[in-house]
Design a protein around this nucleic acid. Structure first.
Length: 951
RNA sequence: GCCGAAGUGGUGGAAUUGGUAGACACGCUGGACUCAAAAUCCAGUGCUAGCGAUAGUGUGCGGGUUCGAGUCCCGCCUUCGGUACCA
């Protein structure tokens, strides 16, 4: 009876499926616990060894909680809408639904192979009409609600309309886009179109013209977080700004709650900081400046109203609405040129450029509200249209950017803060005493800021105001493979919303998945579908990827419900996610949108909690090692030339390009000395025939595959350059978990991934240590088996053996609770090594160990458990409990130091008082020798830890 | 620039509250078994000196607090992640 993972694993997989071991009920006397993984996008490439890292950790925890007596919800599903399937459809004509279904099949097989305890009856697929019916439904709710600031929650839009009909909007306190004041009578006099336009300013899902990230190559609009450095995250194509009528979600209404409620979450500080930065709250004042010779006011936002006496010029965003109105005739030409120049520059140009100061004078002036002095108004691209009011008062003495602008255009600088008492402080630090500032002089900066806030409001020249960097979320995509909007337009572009009874609005079949030339979605070409309801046209955009993923964790609670997104009963039973495991890449996207939707549904009274994810663990990424050959840019007599990495120095680096080599060819892969030998080179050439006449040059000679010319000896090697990077098809470094499982077994794979290091840490995949884990499993197995038969004894364990067992139980329990799975695996190894040394095969020791190991290695433990208890699974047993009495030692070894210098170990009885210990130590001959007559000043004793004698 | 995380043997990493630094594993060295190999087992393994017991030294760098610092404080350096004209 040898340990053979393959046969064990296939047998128990079947058993679990047949007996529905992991099926979870919505009713139970047990306390609930919800363990969630971030569901994957089922890509064509399948899973690689990096994906399961977090899944393994959460599965261990879910299994642990189950053994601890919790009713555990641990589901898995697929985030199935998205660009890659659509791109694939464009290239091959295969319908996304077909390719996605195929990919899901492959994912499912790969996941099952690793022994996860998912309740697959609860699986969701965001592209399933039964699922996206409810995504559309939530959109309808967002459309039908506005954010009331007095109630501090979302309320039905009908209530707002009632307010408008009775009072107009003068006293309405709601989050909205534009300030147009109207009375009740005025409201009633407006046309339908006009009323709808106004309500759009309040709805939580609304339409507006927005500058969107247009990607010509992909033919679509991208979300901000899909753009990296001015290029599309997918494919790296250039992205430009373009105006378009788009749906948006008013996430900014929730900014304050999203910020404040972070404090209550058990998330890492790093992640909370990321969300805080993204929300970017700043408190300041909105101040009005009169324009000279105009009845106009310029509205600025500043966090430093104290520096108002240092404001020597104003800067407006080039796109600011007032620019046309105030520019003087002599400046029209240069202002127009500058605005054209700004418009012509793509996001990418702006970012690529080192901060060069640009701007022009408008010819206009404002009047300083206190000194009445005239201040020139400039425009400059460093002032952003979208942030604050799109206009600033420039205080060059206390802001680096304003200072740079003043320096370039020779504008005056007035020092208003005396920083001489604060050496080392920077221009914008809020420290020092006010000077040159009339009534503020002598005040401390912080004091002056408060003083000005009050004064500005009292004088009526402005108000206190809070600004957020957080932008409303663009919710339209010009794509096929997404949720259609349940929205119709009539000839006047008046919106009609399809109500719940019309849901789901399903995707129509199309012949061509390309976006249309005007940048419209492929849905626009499905004429029948678009015009299906006479007199109306359907919305042809679809929802973005984050729509379906913003609420999927709620659907798992009640996945087949056809009358609600989940029943009230299920929602109140499971409440929220207790543990969420996933990567940091979703820190500000998915995790922010989910919190927003969750809070919104909470406001509607649908949910019992206002935060979705109580505890969050961020697993690191498993990276790949990319092995590269250096290819010389210059061909040699028309032939490619590869060069050994040892011959390439930093100075000559730009003479080469790197060609990624498939990892199957590489010897010593993953080490700095990875290389190709002659056999590998021949394999490489067969794989990449375009290099069949290449020459491979090393320090010992050259290898010419196309002829026997200069044939080197058999030790010939070309060393490769290796770097850590993504595990990806394009680097030919993908490791499939199936291969690892086939070779070592799923238990070994699971434990090895955990053993690799802390779960939060990113690290490159290498299999160097996997054999250690395999050895452990074999050793563990061998404890139960003697002479090829299962054999454990009923003999009573010794105190020493019990001590080993219970120390291990304590250690493992603590480690699981703090998600330190790598140290837990080590603790198992220590335990088995010790039992092996004692040749302990006693049932009383081994049986609890099986239950202890079950969350980590579900298959081997199942097999061994069945030898003790037939008929039910180890995963339905209990996690063993640590009995303290076995941990108590009879004697303790104390390290003994003199003046902090380690000297020796001294063995003492356990349970001695400090006074007793002191007495024994001072009578010890050895100690007296070290002290050589000196009197000890004091003796420090840390019970159970150490003794230090100070002389 | 700002925010965040981290720097420990040849390698991955441990040290949970300030208390024997390097657990566990890989690798390496030597040995047992074997005709041989694989597998398995045993011993050693931070660095320096020494046959050795042992001594010195050692957690990115420089200081400090403490009987005692990988851990706490001050000042730097490096790497990684996020963000970027946010007024």
């Amino acid at each position: 009876m040898q340990y053979s993972p393959t046969s064990i694993e296939s047998r128990w997989k079947l058993y679990w499926a047949k007996n529905e071991v992991y099926k979870t009920d919505n009713h139970s006397d047990k306390p609930k616990y919800y363990v969630l993984d971030m569901f994957p996008y089922p890509s064509g490439a399948g899973l690689h060894v990096g994906h399961p890292l977090g899944y393994i950790a959460s599965d261990i925890y879910a299994r642990y909680k189950r053994l601890k007596g919790f009713n555990v919800l641990h589901p898995m599903g697929y985030d199935a809408f998205g660009l890659p399937a659509e791109q694939y459809a464009i290239q091959t004509g295969v319908h996304p639904a077909v390719s996605i279904a195929e990919n899901i099949g492959r994912y499912r097989a790969q996941l099952d192979n690793i022994g996860f305890s998912y309740d697959w009856t609860r699986s969701v697929n965001t592209s399933d009409p039964k699922y996206y019916k409810w995504t559309q439904w939530i959109f309808l709710q967002l459309y039908d609600h506005y954010y009331n600031l007095s109630a501090n929650k979302a309320l039905p839009i009908n209530e707002l309309v009632k307010d408008f009909e009775t009072f107009g909007n003068t006293n309405v306190s709601a989050v909205h886009t534009q300030d147009i004041l109207f009375s009740a009578d005025e409201w009633k006099s407006y046309s339908d179109i006009e009323q709808q336009r106004i309500l759009m300013n309040y709805r939580l899902a609304y339409r507006k013209v927005s500058y969107v990230n247009w990607c010509e190559a992909l033919g679509t609009v991208l979300a901000n977080d899909e753009v990296k450095d001015g290029l599309s995250e997918r494919g790296g194509h250039p992205v430009e700004k373009r105006p378009m009528m788009q749906w948006s979600l008013r996430i900014t209404a929730y900014a304050e709650r999203l910020l404040n409620d972070l404090d209550r979450l058990d998330w890492s500080d790093a992640l909370k900081a990321m969300q805080r930065n993204w929300i970017g709250k700043s408190v300041g004042a909105q101040v009005f400046f009169d324009v000279v010779n105009h009845p106009l006011k310029i509205e600025i936002f500043t966090t430093r109203p104290d520096t108002i006496f240092g404001a020597t010029f104003m800067v407006l965003a080039p796109e600011h609405d007032l620019v046309d109105l105030i520019t003087t005739s002599d400046m029209i030409e240069s202002v127009k040129n500058y605005r054209d120049y700004v418009a012509s520059r793509s996001e990418r140009d702006r970012m690529a450029e080192v901060k060069e100061v640009t701007g022009v004078f408008t010819g206009a002036y404002t009047k300083h509200p206190f000194t009445e002095e005239h201040i020139p108004i400039w425009i400059g691209e460093y002032v952003l249209k979208d942030y604050g009011t799109g206009a600033i008062m420039a205080v060059p003495s206390d802001d680096d950017r304003d200072f740079a602008f003043a320096e370039k255009f020779r504008l005056p600088v007035i020092d208003v803060v005396d920083k001489t008492q604060n050496p080392g402080s920077s221009r914008q630090d809020k420290v020092g005493k006010m000077i040159n500032s009339s009534f503020l002089n002598g005040m401390d900066v912080k004091e002056a800021i408060q003083y000005m806030f009050n004064l500005i409001e009292k004088e009526g020249i402005g108000t206190r105001r809070t600004n957020y960097k957080l932008r409303d979320a663009n919710f339209s995509r010009q794509r096929y493979w997404g949720e259609p909007f349940p929205v119709l337009y009539d000839q006047n572009q008046l919106i009609t919303i399809l109500d719940e009874s019309h849901l789901p609005v399903t995707l129509p079949e199309v012949k061509d998945f390309h976006p249309t030339s005007e940048g419209k979605s492929p849905l626009a070409s499905a004429k029948f579908w678009v015009n299906e309801i006479s007199g109306y046209e359907r919305e042809t955009d679809t929802m973005p990827g984050f729509a379906g993923s913003s609420w999927y964790f709620l659907r798992y609670m009640d996945p087949d419900n056809e009358t609600a997104f989940a029943s009230e009963e299920a929602l109140h039973y499971w409440k929220d996610v207790d543990l969420y495991v996933g990567g940091t890449e979703h820190a500000v996207g998915h995790l922010m949108y989910s919190r927003f939707w969750h809070k919104f549904l909470f406001d509607l009274g649908k949910l019992p909690t206002d935060e979705p994810f109580k505890k969050l663990i961020n697993q690191g990424m498993i990276q790949g090692v990319i092995a590269n050959l250096y290819l010389q840019k210059e061909k040699l007599e028309g032939r490619h030339q590869f060069v050994c990495a040892q011959l390439v120095s930093d100075d000559t680096l730009d003479e080469y390009i790197k060609i990624a080599v498939h990892i199957d060819f590489v010897s010593d892969y993953g080490t700095p000395k990875s290389y190709l030998d002659i056999v590998a080179i021949e394999n490489f050439i067969r794989w990449r025939p375009e290099f069949s006449n290449a020459i491979f040059k090393s320090s010992t000679g050259a290898f010419d595959a196309s002829s026997s010319l200069g044939q080197p000896n058999s030790t010939f090697r070309i060393y490769l350059q290796s770097e850590v990077g993504k595990m990806s098809k394009r680097y030919f470094n993908v490791v499939n978990p199936d291969d690892v499982v086939a070779r070592y077994g799923a238990d070994c794979f699971r434990m090895y991934e955990m053993f690799l290091g802390p779960i939060e840490q990113s690290k490159p995949w290498d299999t160097k240590g996997i054999e250690g884990v395999q050895k452990f499993l074999k050793k563990f197995w061998s404890l139960f088996v003697e002479d090829d038969v299962f054999c454990v004894s009923d003999e009573k364990p010794t105190r020493e053996e019990l001590k080993i067992l219970h120390q291990t139980i304590k250690k493992i329990t603590d480690d699981i609770e703090r998600f330190s799975f790598n140290t837990a695996v080590s603790a198992f190894m220590v335990c088995v090594n010790e039992l092996k040394k004692l040749n302990c095969r006693k049932k009383e020791i081994l049986e609890p160990l099986v239950r202890l190991l079950a969350p980590f290695a579900p298959f081997i433990t199942e097999e061994l458990w069945s030898q003790f208890n037939k008929g039910y699974s180890v995963h339905q047993s209990e996690f063993p409990i640590c009995h303290q009495e076995y941990l108590m030692a009879d004697t303790i070894e104390y390290p003994l130091s003199v003046n902090g210098k380690k000297r020796d170990l001294i063995t003492l009885e356990a349970g001695l008082s400090n006074a007793d210990i002191e007495k024994i130590v001072l009578e010890n001959d050895q100690v007296l020798k070290w002290l050589s007559g000196q009197q000890p000043k004091k003796i420090i004793i840390v019970p159970g830890r150490m003794i230090n004698i100070v002389v």
